[in-house]
Design a protein around this nucleic acid. Sequence first.
DNA 1: GTAGACCTTGACGCTGACGTCAACGCCAGC
DNA 2: GCTGGCGTTGACGTCAGCGTCAAGGTCTAC
Lengths: 132, 132
Amino acid sequence: MRIGELAERTGTTTRTLRYYESRGLLSARRTGNGYRAYGEDDVRLLRQIRLLQDFGFELEETRPFVECLRAGHPAGDSCPASLEVYRAKLAELDECIAGLQAVREQVGAQLARAELESAAGEPRCELTPDPN
Amino acid sequence: MRIGELAERTGTTTRTLRYYESRGLLSARRTGNGYRAYGEDDVRLLRQIRLLQDFGFELEETRPFVECLRAGHPAGDSCPASLEVYRAKLAELDECIAGLQAVREQVGAQLARAELESAAGEPRCELTPDPN
DNA sequence: GTAGACCTTGACGCTGACGTCAACGCCAGC
DNA sequence: GCTGGCGTTGACGTCAGCGTCAAGGTCTAC
């Protein structure tokens, strides 16, 4: 199949496919007129890439999965290198989540404090009953 | 004080300060020779910006805090607009954390499955005792 | 034979928050 | 007067993952 069909079947764009090729993640035979030609393997390969991309993996991180598939393994994560990427990503996610939760607490504390100060400060600027 | 001293006192760089000025977050008087001149107010203003930046706020999101301080309020979050930014950021953080946790679970599941398949598949490629 | 849908390469644009460099002016100390 | 350290503006570079054009070639259907 040609690049347009592959793009459509994998829910991406021709630009993206050419970009992947420029990054060495995808390769294509060429027909007589210079058009790129793809097969079903490429569909599987792209579905693997897109799945990982949806998880937030960087393109470079998908490379072991791609190479694993190209080596003829049944799944992109049949190789130890892919499992390592999984584990590294889990650690990264945990770190990221923990960082965000810490920030969330700090921002929440700032908001609570500011709301308190606002509630205490505003009445002085308005016509509120004098405690006397 | 001049730009170098302000940068040093706020733990940033002159480039950053000029960038903030280009974004309208910072303003400076000019001395006779064209040098920027800053006061203590600018130090406070920058500390406010840097605090929010450390929390992961975008520069634009610090603008209400900056304007609040410039309006003469004691704190950058003394104004309702700033509190709104806090609340929006909390919602954004919650959404982001939830998304990351969902991804974490999916990646974890992929890893578990791949490890199982790997444990089941590998022995077939090696010299394992035949069940017969 | 020509319109239109596909394909090719190459190159610039985008986002954010600056880093880095160029080419120059100002000012203090020796 | 000259070296060194500050300051100035302007412009391009960085990171990722493409989007979007430009200028053309190819193939199909009418």
